[in-house]
Design a protein around this nucleic acid. Sequence first.
DNA 1: TTATATTTAGAACAAATGTACTAATTTATT
DNA 2: AATAAATTAGTACATTTGTTCTAAATATAA
Lengths: 202, 202
Amino acid sequence: MDTRTNILKTALELYNSQGVNAITSRHIAAKMGISPGNLHYHFRQTDEIISTLYESLATDFDRLMSELESVSPATLDTLRDFSIRSLELAYKYRFIFLHFVEITLRIPSIRKDYYALTRRRTTEFFTIFRQLKADGVFRDDLPESIWEALVTQIFIVGDFWLSNNELTGRLRGGNAIKHYSKIIAGMFYPYLTPAAQLRITE
Amino acid sequence: MDTRTNILKTALELYNSQGVNAITSRHIAAKMGISPGNLHYHFRQTDEIISTLYESLATDFDRLMSELESVSPATLDTLRDFSIRSLELAYKYRFIFLHFVEITLRIPSIRKDYYALTRRRTTEFFTIFRQLKADGVFRDDLPESIWEALVTQIFIVGDFWLSNNELTGRLRGGNAIKHYSKIIAGMFYPYLTPAAQLRITE
DNA sequence: TTATATTTAGAACAAATGTACTAATTTATT
DNA sequence: AATAAATTAGTACATTTGTTCTAAATATAA
């Protein structure tokens, strides 16, 4: 593996396990057995490592969203599949979510990028909701503001389930993903029509 | 005001506005116009400042919970009132929520304390839910697992609405509280009985 | 007033950190 | 094989940070 890729891989491991503020460029170099000089030859500034990792996450997430958009018509299964894949992706880059505010304070461009991503996700969710309402999966007797609130909830839970896990249960890997998948599935349940609810519980 | 109190007040201001990692004991001392030596006479370790501020938050929150428990029978208004007060309290100590994972990595005892608090809050919520179901406010046709999921949702949104705000809208003060109060109110809406829903929208 | 305790300022230290610089070494190109 | 380009190691430097220490100043008590 080339050094640059190896730096990114090692940095991701260390950031994920010890947090973005506890790890310095020297730690990464030491873990790899290379010199600090070498590391800074590949990344002049340490922040570039974080930016690059964030870009990987954003790219992977964009791909996930494209897949979601391409499925037509979307079903509840599509949505569930998407949420599980999202959780898996977030887990892979979990240090970003665990230290999101920290990171955006350190690298403001990440905040701007994330904000743009959020806006795209919002319209995407509304499209899917509209379709699922038409298909009799989601209730259509709820005021519009309730759906808006739901989208914000989804973003908060989607971005901070890892932090919640860190503060409370501290589940790892598959266990964490399984647990929070259920939370998210449960989150949608009251928005389903009685028919769709039945289809799930049986 | 005595110096110790003043240190806490200044620290809270600085942490809230610039983040817990950007602010050092020297910044706090400089802002107050006192020497670093003086600051460290009152707080031998900088972390003690953070711990003390966390304890203030926990104490205030405990008081809020006691008030909630004392109201009997609890109504939907009780719940709404409680959530608004919670948001106000969180806003006052927002640096803790914006840097929660960071802080618990730095001061592990805070995580333990928070975990205990969460467990108490959980049982409290279930008590209230049970009562509101009996009173015909909350639906009683939802599986138990859905209510469990709701409690986790409440914790995640309650703890990280400030982070979400920081990443997206960046509303300040009353505007932020007003906005996220609505989100939380909307969060409960699908769990209400049709009768209770009507009572709200009219 | 005198003695004692508390509070404060300011200097000092060690450790850590980001990053730049230089020289050596390895790899690629001709 | 000779030359040029790239990668790498190791050192060095300025800054920052948490914390300690000492002495001065201030407040309190007798």
